[in-house]
């Protein structure tokens, strides 16, 4: 029984064969957001360190990939590395950016870090808009498609398993699944072993953690670095899905979205991060798609409540409601037949 309950996850392999591009793109956004949210949840949920700078590391990942994989031309610079190497480099770059912030991330606790990390957003935006060569300035820059051993993840080629033609998003779907799966398993591993326990103790009893020999500042800095690497990977997948990276996107609102995700899903849990990412990412897309048939929501540009605004009201309210009534997040809503009886809480 215990292994069998993972079987439904295999259903995730099916969408590319059945769903249209809108849903595939939405799904890929969810996967990218989920990877980022898992990272933020390690930091905020499990270690108690608030971060408002998450969108900065997403940007580092996205532009890191574009820079390492892109080719130089008269306006832009790029190193033209193989995309797989570029992904690794981008994630490492995001990690280094997180590490560079560690003198702050290690010393400040909780909300203090939250406010201090606001700086990352504003300094980040400043840099993104000014480094035209790398980011393409205000209009952004096209993202080179992923390519693994000569197999390109775009609309080229003639790939049609079971008679269904596969374009870029279909192919990318499987890459997204693998990346998300590996990220989730890694985070679970961290949470269930020594570092996870150390992180939780730092969150709950910082003094006690210090007393039993946990290096508090070093652990905080390490978690911050790890969480920024997660954000970097999320950023790469986001860029690959968007196929264009625009600096404006990686602002304050995006950082708030990620915090909303982890609160809505459930603080400190990997499943929670995925659930929250799904909720916050899909909501605006769903409302946009069905804005014609929904009451109170009008299509963008007509002056009424646009779907994006409606989504913001809903998940803003969801954050407040969940803090008030469901402290464990949506993950705390248990469906008895799907959840195992015994839970090993990390």
């Amino acid at each position: 029984m215990s292994k069998l309950r993972y079987l439904p996850l295999l259903l995730l392999l099916l969408p590319p064969f059945y769903l249209d591009l809108f849903w595939l793109q939405a799904g890929l956004f969810v996967m990218a957001a989920a990877i980022g949210a898992i990272g933020l949840n390690l930091l905020t949920g499990s270690t108690g360190q608030l971060s408002m700078g998450h969108s900065f590391f997403l940007a580092v990942g996205a532009y890191g990939y574009v820079y390492f994989a892109g080719e130089s031309d008269e306006h832009l610079v790029g190193l033209g590395l193989p995309p797989v190497v570029a992904i690794v480099c981008a994630v490492v770059l995001a990690g280094l950016a997180g590490l560079a912030f560690s003198p702050i991330a290690g010393r400040l606790s909780g909300v203090y870090l939250g406010i201090a990390s606001l700086a990352l957003i504003f300094i980040g935006q400043h840099v993104l808009f000014n480094v035209h060569d790398v980011t393409g300035g205000y209009n952004g820059r096209a993202v080179p498609p992923l390519e693994i051993f000569g197999f390109t993840f775009d609309n080229s080629g003639d790939v049609a398993p079971f008679g269904i033609p596969f374009g870029g998003l279909e192919k990318l779907w499987f890459v997204g699944l693998i990346l998300l799966g590996v990220s989730a398993l890694f985070a679970l591993g961290v949470l269930r072993s020594r570092p996870g326990r150390a992180m939780n103790l730092i969150r709950d009893q910082q003094t006690a953690a210090g007393v039993i020999g946990i290096p508090v500042a070093r652990t905080r800095a390490a978690v911050f670095t790890l969480s920024s690497m997660y954000a970097g990977l999320g950023g790469v997948l986001l860029a690959l899905t968007f196929q264009r990276a625009v600096p404006d996107y990686f602002g304050m609102l995006l950082a708030l979205d990620y915090l909303a995700m982890i609160v809505i899903g459930g603080l400190g849990s990997v499943t929670g991060a995925i659930v929250g990412a799904t909720f916050v990412t899909l909501l605006p897309q769903l409302l946009t798609r069905y804005s014609d048939s929904l009451p109170l929501v009008s299509p963008p540009g007509t002056g009424g409540v646009s779907p994006a605004d409606a989504a913001r009201y809903l998940y803003g309210a969801a954050v407040v409601g969940i803090v008030l009534f469901l402290p464990a997040g949506l993950r705390g809503l248990r469906i008895p037949s799907l959840t195992p009886r015994k839970e090993t809480t990390p």
Binding site: G48, L50, V111, A260, D309, A317, V319, V323, P327
Partner: peptide
């Protein structure tokens, strides 16, 4: 009303900020 730790309540004010700002 919130019984959550103060830090989580701080995140809840972000929820209020999202709503007010959107409106």
């Amino acid at each position: 009303r919130a019984k959550a730790p103060r830090q989580v309540v701080a995140i809840a004010t972000i929820g209020i900020d999202i709503v007010l700002m959107a409106e």
